[in-house]
């Protein structure tokens, strides 16, 4: 642990990209020193000075060492202040925190990546790592669900990945107009059609919790072992150090034992309304 883990380090917004309405990607560079190494799936606490601090997943390439990349949706006062930052704005950063997507454990296996909505952002570092080391993995499948074609995140990058012949990409939306030529329907419906070699498959899932719950069940029904299904959980994180308890999820603090957790650890708790 760092000497002063509650003290944010100053970072400058180097570049912004408006991804969607109310969704912005920020590139941050440290005011001094180097960018800390991170693992795909980890998050930082981003501090909008004078407003507050929020946990935001890292969405950048883990191989890109010169900046931190975060994609932020305007939801409340803090995330709105972060998403509306402009180049030159100073923000505070603490981290990286949390567990990582099992990209090393997935070597030699088929990998199914399932993202819903903004859940593509926390999965992006894992996707980039897998693509950079493509020969180490078997089949690579990305399922991505969104509300409508206008709300697809990283659209150009999706097109770029789709042009590769070594990754299967299936995009589905809840509703569309006649101009859409992709799938319409919910993400879990795509899973039985994949023809998975379940014994040799590992899955990483990130999206709204109810979507992850149904995807976890569909993957398990398809024969994928529960301990090979990994979900990125989300709770209200404050200290990110396992001290304050704001992110308690049953017996776990998400900031310490998550955000990436195995399905066998969380499946029962996903059905509980009280937590």
């Amino acid at each position: 642990m760092k000497a002063a883990p509650l003290r944010p380090a100053p970072y400058r917004v180097r570049r912004i990209k408006r991804e969607l309405h109310g969704v912005t990607t920020l590139e941050l560079v440290p005011a001094q020193g180097a960018v800390p190494a991170f693992e795909p799936g980890q998050f930082n606490m981003l501090y909008a000075f004078g407003v507050g601090e929020a946990a935001i997943s890292i969405s950048g390439d883990p191989a890109q060492a010169d900046c931190l990349t975060h994609t932020v949706r305007e939801m409340g006062a803090i995330s709105t202040a972060l998403a509306q930052a402009h180049p030159g704005t100073m923000l505070g950063v603490r981290g990286p925190f949390g567990t990582a997507w099992p990209t090393r454990a997935a070597e030699g296996l088929d990998v199914v990546l399932i993202a819903g909505g903004l859940g593509l952002a926390p999965l992006r570092p894992a996707i980039l790592r897998l693509l950079a080391a493509r020969p180490l993995y078997g089949r690579l499948i990305l399922l991505y669900g969104a509300r409508s074609p206008n709300e697809l995140l990283y659209r150009h990058e999706l097109e770029h990945w789709r042009q590769r012949l070594d990754v299967d990409i299936h995009v589905t939306v809840d509703y569309a107009d006649a101009g859409w030529h992709g799938n319409v329907g919910v993400v879990p419906r795509l899973i039985p059609r994949l023809g998975l070699d379940a014994q040799n498959t590992l899955a990483m899932v990130c999206g709204p919790e109810v979507m992850m719950r149904f995807c976890g069940a569909a993957l398990h029904d398809a024969g994928v072992a529960m301990d090979r299904i990994h979900l990125s959980m989300e709770r209200n994180m404050k200290c990110a150090l396992g001290l304050c308890g704001h992110c308690q999820f049953g017996a776990d603090f998400i900031c310490k034992t998550g955000a990436v957790m195995r399905y066998d650890q969380v499946a029962q708790r996903l059905r509980l309304r009280e937590i």
Binding site: R73, G116, G117, R147, E151, G185, V186, P188, F214
Partner: peptide
């Protein structure tokens, strides 16, 4: 599937 679609899980 329709129930899940009705939940509008990606809505903000």
């Amino acid at each position: 599937q329709t129930r899940l679609q009705m939940l509008d899980v990606y809505g903000t």
